[in-house]
Design a protein around this nucleic acid. Sequence first.
DNA 1: TATGAATGAGGGTTCATTCAT
DNA 2: TATGAATGAACCCTCATTCAT
Lengths: 205, 205, 205, 205
Amino acid sequence: MQVLKDEMKKNILRSALREFNRLGYRDASMRQIADTAGITPGNIYRYFASKEKMLHELLQPTYEQFVGYMLEIKQDLEDVSAMEPDNSLAFLHKIQSTIVRLFNQSSLELSVLMNKSEGSPYENVKQELTTVTYSILEKAFHTFQNGTARLQDEENQSAHMIASTIVEGMCIILREYEDGDTIERLVDELVRIYFTGIGDRINRS
Amino acid sequence: MQVLKDEMKKNILRSALREFNRLGYRDASMRQIADTAGITPGNIYRYFASKEKMLHELLQPTYEQFVGYMLEIKQDLEDVSAMEPDNSLAFLHKIQSTIVRLFNQSSLELSVLMNKSEGSPYENVKQELTTVTYSILEKAFHTFQNGTARLQDEENQSAHMIASTIVEGMCIILREYEDGDTIERLVDELVRIYFTGIGDRINRS
Amino acid sequence: MQVLKDEMKKNILRSALREFNRLGYRDASMRQIADTAGITPGNIYRYFASKEKMLHELLQPTYEQFVGYMLEIKQDLEDVSAMEPDNSLAFLHKIQSTIVRLFNQSSLELSVLMNKSEGSPYENVKQELTTVTYSILEKAFHTFQNGTARLQDEENQSAHMIASTIVEGMCIILREYEDGDTIERLVDELVRIYFTGIGDRINRS
Amino acid sequence: MQVLKDEMKKNILRSALREFNRLGYRDASMRQIADTAGITPGNIYRYFASKEKMLHELLQPTYEQFVGYMLEIKQDLEDVSAMEPDNSLAFLHKIQSTIVRLFNQSSLELSVLMNKSEGSPYENVKQELTTVTYSILEKAFHTFQNGTARLQDEENQSAHMIASTIVEGMCIILREYEDGDTIERLVDELVRIYFTGIGDRINRS
DNA sequence: TATGAATGAGGGTTCATTCAT
DNA sequence: TATGAATGAACCCTCATTCAT
């Protein structure tokens, strides 16, 4: 054989990862992936039955871990009746550590999973993360405003916005940095900022 | 005649705006835009030389304003030697009000410009906004850490991360909400959160 | 428009009919159909959403009639408890007249439907015809052997063989002749042969 | 070595036979044939220059016998000036026994040759059989109508139809049944039916 | 000015065949 | 001799764009 079969598979997945990250799943082209891998398009199909199966093989391990982590968090969340401030921060830290752990194992895959999977069965993964984050916030908000009034639409919107932006923030960090330690530090910082603001950084007086 | 032509142009642009917002620039189809506009695909090319030129005409005004606002902010920024905390918040409010103002004038165009322009020459506009935001933060951070040590790489990265995520946060809000007041409130809340955290919302004790 | 849209549609269907008859549905190529029609492959898709839809549009009217006729025959068959010889011949004449009628309305379509639809949803149509024919024969055989013994496996096989060959015989006639009257005469002759043999034709003594 | 090579050839041909019978020559895949044979696709080409050559080696012996038998029948036919009824039946029995003999020697090959060779140079073999059968019928018809009138077009067409359908009938039997005795019985029955009809089967009165 | 039919390049995919090993 | 990876042409199909009318 011209190239070790396993080598070639990895080679193709590497190209695919690159192209998916560049253009997204839908707009990445098998021909371009083949070119990048230095082979002909038809040859890809010796290794992967279809574009979607290729994505699957690329993302499945990461996705499965993701689902597992999410499940844990959801179950933990159900066990909590009233949520203390520290508690909600702790839950956000779980989200954070999910991201960081997944990143450390498979950074680019996670990035595709979160940001570039439109048009594939994985396109709603980020939404799942956002939803869980929202659940955390909702519980936190709800608990502490219980005495005063029912959780209002505005509060809901705010929680939604915060969940979306904090999750998206994590995704950006994944997209823009490569070093694991840097990612970890920045995600941690992001979560902290959402809790305490950047005031302490710019206001030492 | 010119009037008719202008009417038709607006009509087409309206459809294009809708489709770009729905599917993004790259995946929106000229035929669908034509259908939505109630004309034929070929006819679009009487008014716009290409899909890209069409996007250009759609976004150019908003983009120019955007550039103008950015320029103002940059110049203001240059005039500030030492930045006080309140000052940096004020600057962020400028970013915020840029977004809000642009939104109020051309909400959908801004959303396309920021979120749906992948594959077009505008795909990096968000980056420009991020860069300016970064400049603000850099100056703020720099000022207040001046006494202790030189601005370190880590600080730079943090500033970059904060800039990216806060800008992306605004873009998400643009993408996910339609009502102007809601947008305004949420963007404001986002900026405030970045300064003071959500602590006051969940910790009333 | 360069060519009347409806003309072109008919033109394409004519080419398709030709190619389907030549190579069968599966092996006929859209490119070749386009070439035969004097257009580009892409243009076919302005007229038909897919190869399968094209076949559908080509065969549906014929198929619907076919189904209708089959239904009638099946219902008539249910109403018959004991089948006289003349009766079974009459039933075969119904099959025969179904074929002849359908042929007179749409000869090539019927030929594709019966002989060249492998790989499409219509691939089992001939089988339906064979099954109904088998039902007729089974009833006829069963009735007249009732007194002696139960219908044996061999009888079943014979009935099956006769049904298959008589139906296929009709299909061959459809395939090889074009003139309606000829078709009608030959199909009639075929059915008669199956009942009385060709003996009377070669044995006048 | 030659022995090994021959073993392998037979092995491949066995797989090819299976696949050709399953899907037909055109739609059978070399890769599947290789898989079934337990070898690699490339290796097939050590033994056969192409798919077509492979089919050739598979069918050639059967085809040559077939041609030989046909020749015999044709020559016998030439020696017969006036054909008696029994004679024509006898000739049809020769056709029949050709089929049965070939089947007993190489059942699957015969089935491919007759039914599954579309897209190959053998796709018209069935036609040859039909032509000989037609010659028999023509002579029989001609003989017995000699006194009355010239052999008419209609008679020709009838003879043609009968030849086609009886041959196709035999082919169907080859296609649909596997057991030699069953084949033999059904082919015999088919020929008898063409001579005397199924009347005796359903009309015992 | 407007139509919408037509094009051509490119999409994902399959498969007989070739060829480096 | 045998492997199986690789090729290239063809498959069905889509879409921005062009152009005869």
